[in-house]
């Protein structure tokens, strides 16, 4: 089922949660809504589910107006951030809930409910927990129950709100792979909200990066990582080394010194040169466009990082650079930084 969001806006009192957001999700896709807290990603998910209503805009499922239907009739599977399992019901009854509440001509016979629930519990690999209560389960097990419960109503849209947020790193990684596998097995279009970029990049077909109630960029994980459309995306996804600069008459300057770097068509004014740490080489201070004093060097496993203080327009700026293992770097010494691959954005952006 395709999902279309057209010009959706939503305000909470004075806070602009969503500002004219449009998004197209293809059928069978797994899309991640990625952004910091307060970026509006959960609000967008709740509007698609029908748990919140937009002030303006449209939501369409397969071209049909979804806003004309309540959450009850949208047939979406929603997995809540803290699972929201029914604490007074067993795992079995939690999963059976969506079938039990059907009345009249939609009523599901008890035998069919039993069969369907067993099948789902097997699918999420927790059939041995059927008689337990949510309070007796681990975080990962609750997550599986929540997913089985959402799948019980055979939704064609699966919405997941920070599905792995409350789990420890190891379980998270395992469940992530398993969810991707599950998505491929089921005829379902999935939308996942996360603030964890690693999760979004690893799991999703496409990533929607959100900030301040707007969509900053939509693209494949490789696209948003390699070619960030805005400084916000560059900052938010992957590690960023930000160097202060200025564009004057189309040329890049560091202080009063012109740089032999491309300004990439950025408008005149204060600018920021953004690069991935591994795309910045060390060089002799005299030859490099940027130079600074080494404050500290840290090593964790194969990774070495150095804090380098660089003179900026409004006082010194400390950047974190990646240091090759074979490089000797003395604390207190001067070192030059030479960006190999970089993007230039206006500083206000």
């Amino acid at each position: 089922m395709t999902i279309d969001v057209v010009g959706v806006s939503k305000r909470f009192k004075s806070f602009n949660a969503l500002d004219n957001v449009s998004l197209h999700v293809r059928s069978g896709e797994l899309v991640a809504l990625l952004g910091p807290s307060g970026s509006g990603k959960t609000t967008l998910l709740r509007i698609i589910a029908g748990l919140d209503w937009p002030d303006a805009g449209e939501v369409r499922f397969d071209g049909e107006d979804a806003l004309a239907r309540t959450v009850r009739d949208r047939n979406v599977g929603f997995v809540f951030q803290h699972y929201a399992l029914f604490r007074h019901l067993s795992v079995f009854e939690n999963v059976a809930f969506g079938l039990r509440v059907r009345t009249g001509k939609d009523k599901v016979p008890d035998a069919a409910i039993r069969a369907r629930v067993s099948e789902l519990l097997e699918l999420v690999q927790i059939d041995w927990l059927a008689d337990r209560y949510p309070g007796q389960l681990s975080g990962g097990q609750r997550q599986r129950v929540a997913l089985a419960r959402a799948l019980a109503i055979s939704p064609r849209v699966l919405l997941l709100d920070e599905p792995f947020g409350a789990l420890d790193a190891k379980v998270r990684k395992e469940l992530r792979r398993w969810l991707r596998h599950l998505h491929e097995e089921l005829p379902v279009t999935s939308l996942l909200v996360t603030h964890d970029q690693e999760e979004a990049l690893e799991l999703a077909d496409r990533v929607v990066v959100m900030g301040h109630g707007r969509i900053e960029q939509v693209g494949t994980p490789a696209e948003v990582y390699e070619n960030p459309a805005t400084a916000f995306v560059h900052d938010f996804i992957g590690e960023t080394l930000a160097l202060p600069a200025e564009v004057r008459a189309g040329r890049l300057y560091a202080g009063d010194r012109p740089l032999a770097l491309d300004s990439q068509g950025t408008a005149d004014g204060p600018a920021r040169l953004l690069a991935r740490p591994h795309d910045v080489d060390f060089a002799d201070p005299g030859d490099a466009p940027f130079a600074g004093r080494v404050l500290a060097v840290r090593t964790f496993g194969p990774v070495r990082r150095a804090d380098i203080e660089i003179a900026g327009r409004d006082g010194p700026v400390v950047v974190e650079a990646a240091v090759p293992l074979q490089q000797d770097l003395a604390t207190g010494g001067l070192i030059g930084l030479l960006p190999r691959k970089y993007r230039v954005f206006a500083a206000s952006a």
Binding site: A49, L51, V71, R72, V76, F86, V101
Partner: peptide, 8 residues
């Protein structure tokens, strides 16, 4: 909310 989204 979970109950309503499940059709209750």
């Amino acid at each position: 909310e979970a109950a309503i989204s499940l059709g209750a």
